[in-house]
Design a protein around this nucleic acid. Sequence first.
RNA 1: GGGGCCGUAGUCCAAUCAGGCAGGAGACACGCGACUUAGGAUCGCGACAGUGUGGGUUCGAAUCCCACCGGCCCCA
Length: 821
Amino acid sequence: MTGVDENFDPRAVQDKWQARWEELNPFAASEDPADERPRRYALDMFPYPSGDLHMGHAEAFAIGDAVARYWVQRGYNVLHPIGWDSFGLPAENAAIKRDSHPAEWTYANIDTQAESFKRYAIAFDWSRRLHTSDADYYRWNQWLFLRFYERGLAYRKGGYVNWCPNDQTVLANEQVVAGRCERCHAVVEKRLLTQWYFKITEYADRLLADMEQLDWPERVLLMQRNWIGRSEGADVAFEIEGRAEPVTVYTTRPDTLYGATFFVVAADAALADEICAPEQRAEFEAYRETVRRESEIDRLATDREKTGVFLGRYAVNPVNGERMPVWAADYVLAEYGHGAIMAVPAHDQRDLDFARRFGLPVRVVVHTGDADPGESGVATPGEGELVNSGPLDGLAKSAAIPRITEVLEERGLGKAAVNYRLRDWLISRQRFWGTPIPIIHCESCGEVPVPDDQLPVRLPEDLRGADLSPRGVSPLAAASEWVNVDCPKCGGPAKRDTDTMDTFVDSSWYFLRYCSPDYSDGPFDVEQVRRWMPADQYNGGVEHAILHLLYSRFFTKVLYDMGMVDFTEPFKRLVNQGQVILGGSAMSKSTGNLVDLGAQIDEFGVDAVRLTMMFAGPPEDDIDWADVSPSGSVKFLARVHRVAAEVTSAPGADAATGDAELRKVTHHTIDEVTRLVEGHRYNVAIARMMELTSAARRVIDTGAGAGDPAVREAAETLAVTLSLFSPYTAEEMWARLGHQAPVAKAGWPSADPALLVQESVTCVVQVAGKVRDRLEVSPEIGDDELERLALASEKVQAALADRGIRKVVVRAPKIVNIVPA
RNA sequence: GGGGCCGUAGUCCAAUCAGGCAGGAGACACGCGACUUAGGAUCGCGACAGUGUGGGUUCGAAUCCCACCGGCCCCA
């Protein structure tokens, strides 16, 4: 062989260009107002610094990088920043274990990851790097908290909250997945605590309505819609005998009001305690104790037997005056609606299960045509005609709902109502490594905000190791010098709030900080944000479909209401990459089912690992590392590099004088790859680049040879397009072709339209749907002429034999289908 | 229980949005040949087989519709 492939040593090429790029700094975004290039903001979900980068990071950032690099090639002024989500529990746990400070572990890991990102050749603007655990960052969490507080969007309240017994802290609803802690998977308990909340529920309708603006995967929007869980129904007031105030319940099925046969109050709701009759109290309190010990998982299980206790009281059905026994049960949640429901066993399965367990009556009020629920044990929630319902009789369910709502409103017994599944966001945490909540509790003044000019409230630096052990209250409480302060209002003795903020607060606005990372007069420079935001594309894992993405949308809307931003949605387009798995299951350190990114890079090189990620399939699909072939990528990179290395024509050689066929392939490839990259179909784009490589190879070996200018044109096209995926190889090719680095700024090639036109196309002629002949015809051929040509074909005539023709379908210039009689 | 997404060669995947030649775009693995020795290199060639199942619409269905089977996800 020529020996040039021996010159292509991926490791040497990496080291050489990484150093060179460090000098060139090609990806700094320009803030120059005179820079007229249109701006694009390519945003990646920032990493948590737990050890080094792993395969998942490698895929996610390879995708985001292809986007950013493509925009740079297209001549945009591109913002592609990086930072670290560096507060959080793992650092704290590591500090306890090692008797050190969380900052030590955190910043060491950040440095490791930063070095890996550089080696991995991600096109970041390194000058904008931020860490949420820096006081320069978290002071603005505190500042934002105070603005939320002023607007009534941050408040403290007592109630049952989710408690993770392992992490020894409360959790937001969004952090409880199927009854377990989303971090450590411990079964979540309920505790009665006073905690800080953000009033995200006030934005529920806007969070729903503004989804229209979003070019996001439909399934993510659907998940958010489900999470917010808007439902329409009615609030209905029920008298409870012996209680002055009526109790309001929310129902989505007011049409079934005549079918309500009992009333259920959440066992752990205050109402149950209040109305329980004295003779039932002992039984009720015993039951309540068992309920409190139950996990969310138990309570949600649909197949377990219903439990409950009669409270010895009766509610009155407002439409027919019937007395309904009031029960306490665990299948009604204290936090949902008003913590009490009217039970309609005929048309709600859980109510029916309860009724059958305790021998309560079942009354059908909607005739659905299905078996009687009282007999079958299967509730009938479907459409049907109302019966046993006084004035509603004969109406369809859909007509009965507005009718009964109207009646209730007329009589002052109820009204149409909207309910949400979404709860307010619980943001306080009883842990150390987070943003201190900037509130001071004064005995005489109550809650007093820390004045802005005293921000940041820094974390005390003398806590470390065992000081941080979880003990159910924040470790900050033990730092007495830090805790005890003078009240900013009255100067009297006061104590700091010792909880820290959920780290999802940090990540709800970091993308704004990137626009002006060193700004010191506010969380961000409003002008800079106006120029860069909203982000054009946001890349990250679907695991954030609800939590982070919902919170960020909420923050953006609040900032909009504060007049700090001029848009209501932060991320125009969202791309969720799949996971990298191994042998069909998720990679995990604990099971040893793991591929180490560093080892892959050592073996195959950065470019081959990146190319393998991008070529494996569509970005949103999972990649099973057992199914892909990084060695195949190595082979391709050597092959495409060899094409460039063999080129002997001079830079600037006139391609027009070169091989016409190869030129067509090159320009078709440019045209297709452009479209494919725009559509995020990188795997197909790479396949096209492989085809072009083969076409150039053929011309070198068996055609016009390596000196043909068309070969140079193909090689240059390959270098620039490959730079999105395998930047080191692309840079080396570009240098071999006699050009100046960086190839990243070479400029995207454009296809010559003249080379895209086809002189002839193959028209398929079918008889009864079977291909019988192929005709080479002009792409401009008319239907009539094509039909004549097709019918004249000998093969067609033979296939027809002596059958007549019933119909001829012509779709010029691609196909003719002749249907015999 | 409700809703959503997905089933194409031994394997990963194209073509599905907008119905029109799957002699599958590309690749992995496999086999053969060439490179005057060798080949975990390179270049070339090849075979295999097939749109989950059953209906429907259509001149024509991987593509659209319905049902079923199987897998994944969200809510309950």
